[in-house]
Design a protein around this nucleic acid. Structure first.
Lengths: 157, 157
DNA sequence: CCTTTATGGTAAGGGTACCTGACGAGTTAC
DNA sequence: GTAACTCGTCAGGTACCCTTACCATAAAGG
């Protein structure tokens, strides 16, 4: 079976971009989870992402789904959970008998603000760790990379 | 319920570090998935991560779990799936009656190599998009950030 | 030797976050 | 008015994690 273990392969693989981005993401979610654990325990990362997508007037689930790049069904489940948690309210859309509107409750607004505050704290933390200048460079490079990738017609798009 | 929608809040939130890292991670997984979809359809991201952790002589599930920073149980499930898929083989550890050794099969070695190749291709792609010099800077900054975060005694650690 | 204590795997049961496919109800276009 | 489309939603499934509990083996102490 294991006919081939020629190279060390275990040491021959330092930090590549994949591992770095993955680890940064891990740190990100871990730190955000921790920062939010004391305040709104029930608000999951996915829910937090949805919170900031909901407009003040209320948003349609299908619109949110496309904004968040997921299926209507996934968004539906997320919204049901959030409604059960009291973060949003689902009311019928007066302009369309099929549709509904997801609107933030007071608790939802609070949760959203907490989430943004946590992101800001994370930013500050990382900026302290890395230094303001380097942080600025890092953000610029990431943005440039993502813009570049988004502009490509082929592949993942 | 929605008693407070004072600030625009929808436009007032540009690219922060959280969104950037998250998006980079999304691009990463999407691109890797696509690159790997043609070759070994059954190898999931989590499995790929485990593949590179298995030593040539075979590794104990408990060791892999701590390396991957998950519970023994989660690693166990992952390994069972991978064994069913023919990527690894679980044999009893001759030096410890309780333990088992996960060893890569030929298919496992192939899958691992495909994974690494995909990461390399991704690196090349991003390097092309961003430019070699900037890519180098980006990698350096990410590594520096992660090192800095890892050195901190408090919080997430 | 024999018993306590640690450790390795694993069975049972949960939960989140996604997916596809199908369907009825309402809307829009012809 | 009916055909085509879109909306939310039900049903069912997958990947990847978790805690709790149990049993077998191993190691260490008396």
């Amino acid at each position: 079976m294991s006919a081939q273990q020629p190279s060390p392969k275990f040491a021959s693989q330092p930090d590549h971009i994949g591992r770095l981005v993955r680890n940064a993401f891990s740190h990100l979610t871990a730190e955000l989870n921790e920062r939010l654990s004391g305040t709104h325990p029930g608000v999951t990362p996915a829910q937090n992402r949805v919170l900031v997508l909901i407009e003040p007037e209320g948003s349609r689930p299908a619109v949110l789904a496309s904004r968040a790049e997921m299926t209507r069904q996934s968004m539906h489940e997320l919204l049901m959970t959030m409604a059960a948690a009291g973060l949003i309210e689902l009311r019928p859309d007066p302009t369309d008998g099929r549709a509904k509107l997801a609107v933030l409750t007071a608790a939802g607004w609070d949760a959203e603000r907490e989430g943004l505050r946590a992101v800001l704290a994370l930013h500050t933390h990382w900026e302290t760790t890395l230094g303001a200048a380097k942080m600025h460079t890092l953000i610029g490079l990431l943005r440039e990379l993502l813009d570049g990738l988004a502009d490509e017609p082929n592949s993942t798009a």
